[in-house]
């Protein structure tokens, strides 16, 4: 399967089919991941190439165990790279850092801290020169954005799963990362809460326009949120199988997306890929 990158109106591709480097936020080149096992090396990812533009929202879809999460944690710097490289704004990454915010599948809040303290944990780290009040204001602003203005001082352990993940979203945006990495952030939520949080996520994202890479299992979620949906082949030796541009206008509403003529075309494309 060849990689299809459609020419979007505002971007011209270079001769070799790549985006010009000034447009690129995140660049994965010949990425490889190998886990040594007693029976020899297990190659999870091989020759994986992916460019993600500034202010782009990319969702990644693929079968369970294909290496999506491995790839994301490599971008986050939490998992060492076996071959190739990852760069953010043309700079190779070395380990984890707050320029790449992560929203994990489990909310991963410190349960002994309040919602505000959890967000402040990151804010204090990223803005050490700001005054205490400024840092508090940043944390409170994002907690308000995710609809938690009444729960600043509630302990994380007293919040519901959905509310915890809202704090997770606030924490990730509050450190103003260059890239936002989302590892199936709504996978553990019921479908009602999931819809609510998708709306909240896209609302903040519309405002902040932080380059985002999100893993999901949910075809509708992938289409609703993304500018491009990246489909990964099944492992071992997983790579990019196909890329689908989603040309809906932003800001989007769920209703307008569902009523769009192209919606079912996109959906069929993704499902066909996953079933073959």
């Amino acid at each position: 399967m060849a990689t299809i990158i459609k020419d979007k109106a505002n971007v011209t591709l270079t001769e070799n089919g790549l985006f010009p480097s000034s447009e690129v936020m995140l660049d994965l080149k010949n990425l490889k991941k190998v886990y040594p096992t007693p029976k020899g090396d297990y190659v999870v990812l091989e020759d994986l190439n992916l460019q993600i533009k500034k202010e782009e929202f990319v969702t990644i879809i693929g079968h369970s165990g294909c290496g999506k999460t491995t790839m994301l944690s490599m971008i986050a710097g939490l998992n060492p790279i076996s071959g190739g490289n990852i760069s953010v704004l043309s700079k190779h990454i070395k380990g984890p850092g707050p320029d790449r915010g992560v929203i994990f599948q489990a909310p991963s809040l410190m349960p002994w801290m309040t919602a505000l303290q959890n967000v402040l944990l990151g804010v204090n780290q990223v803005f050490p020169d700001a005054t205490k009040k400024q840092r508090n204001d940043i944390a409170k602003y994002y907690l308000q954005k995710v609809g938690l203005e009444d729960s600043f001082n509630k302990r994380a352990s007293d919040l519901s799963q959905g509310m915890q993940q809202r704090v997770g979203i606030a924490r990730a945006f509050a450190i103003k990362p260059k890239v936002l990495l989302l590892d199936e952030p709504f996978g553990m939520l019921d479908s009602l809460t999931r819809g609510e949080l998708q709306d909240i996520l896209i609302e903040i994202w519309n405002k902040e326009k932080i380059t985002a890479v999100m893993i999901t299992h949910d075809v509708d979620e992938a289409i609703f949120l993304a500018d491009r949906v990246v489909m990964m082949t099944s492992g071992p030796k997983a790579k990019i199988g196909d890329v689908l541009n989603i040309d809906f206008e932003r800001p989007r509403t769920r209703k307008s997306v569902l009523e769009h003529d192209d919606y079912y075309k996109y959906r069929k494309h993704l499902i066909d890929f996953l079933e073959h």
Binding site: A76, P96, F104
Partner: peptide, 8 residues
């Protein structure tokens, strides 16, 4: 992981 990402 959170501590690593935030570089505590």
């Amino acid at each position: 992981n959170v501590a690593k990402v935030l570089k505590l």
